[in-house]
Amino acid sequence: MLPTFLVVALALGGARAFPLGNPCPAGSFSPNGFTSGGQTSCEPCVKGTYQPETGKTVCLDAAAGYYVPATGVLEQTECPAGHFSAEGKAHACEACDLGSYQPAAGQPACIAAEVGTYINVYAATRTLPCPAGTYQEEAGQSRCKACLSGTFNSIQGAEACCPCCAGTFSGPASARCDVCPSSRPFSKPGSGDDVNCKALPYGSDTISPHGVGFAYDSCEVKMVFGSATCPITGGTLGAGLTLNPQARFVIE
């Protein structure tokens, strides 16, 4: 194969043929895209850059969401799910931090965990719902908060906890409220221990829910005692259920 020639104007006004040499292979470059007759060699593309074609004068920067981990590379590579590259020319991708995730490949950023969820590992591809008895009202968190004593939550992915009704109580991180013993049926709303259950009422806001027939463990259905609103088990009322005359049910 005959070499390619370039006609170069000389300072004295003459001209002569000068061999360009071979084009630079893919993954490399030179100032004119050729080896210049053996006097100039082609340079490999550095990390973070690539070149899929031959005879090029520059390499291409990896785009955001991609990376090039080695020299002399022909193609850029997508960052895998759970990773990202925010800027171009990356030679490595970063793992999503705690509290964030990325389910897709080739992305420039991670996504903050939504409220009611958490992420406690690096390079996550999905969120985890807060378990019953816990909640999280902020986005981008690595853990959930335990419901305080006197409150509960029976669902996953909760943003808040519900107060226990009068006549019930709960400890920390509870998924339900327990009914006070029949010998001590009275307690104030939001009671955090059965020691708060009393044999006799001690205030207008202290009402016994006995006779309702089931415990309180959901915010979806609520029982109203006068002016007090109390969360109870979700779903329909059972047949033959005996209600306290002071109680009525509200489904929200």
Rank of each mutant, 00 (worst) to 15 (best):
V8R: 12
K89S: 10
G234Q: 05
A124Y: 06
D205A: 13
T54M: 15
A90G: 04
T49F: 15
P3E: 08
V250Q: 12
A92R: 12
V115F: 15
N244A: 11
A113S: 13
L98G: 05
D194S: 11
G235I: 01
E114P: 13
P131Q: 05
M1S: 07
T127C: 13
A215L: 14
H83G: 01
L243I: 05
A112M: 09
A199F: 02
A92G: 05
L148H: 06
F29V: 01
C161K: 04
T151R: 09
E75Y: 15
E137D: 09
R126H: 14
K145S: 07
G65H: 03
P245W: 14
P3Q: 10
G37K: 05
H91D: 08
G13Y: 15
S149I: 06
N32E: 06
T236S: 14
P209C: 14
P209Q: 06
T40Y: 09
A199D: 02
G21Y: 08
F214T: 00
T4Q: 10
Q76C: 09
Q102P: 01
V212Q: 09
K198M: 13
E87F: 15
S36Y: 13
G150H: 14
P80R: 11
P209F: 15
I232S: 09
G203K: 10
C165H: 13
T127F: 15
T49H: 14
L148E: 05
A113W: 04
T236R: 13
S183I: 06
P201G: 07
L10A: 08
T229G: 04
A62N: 08
L74N: 05
A113H: 08
K47N: 03
C130P: 01
K188F: 15
A92W: 14
A26R: 08
Q51K: 06
A92C: 04
Y50G: 01
G27W: 14
G82P: 03
P185D: 02
I119Y: 10
T117M: 12
Y118K: 03
F29N: 00
A112C: 02
C130N: 03
A239H: 13
K56I: 05
C24G: 01
P231H: 11
G48P: 06
S204D: 11
T206F: 14
F225E: 00
T134S: 10
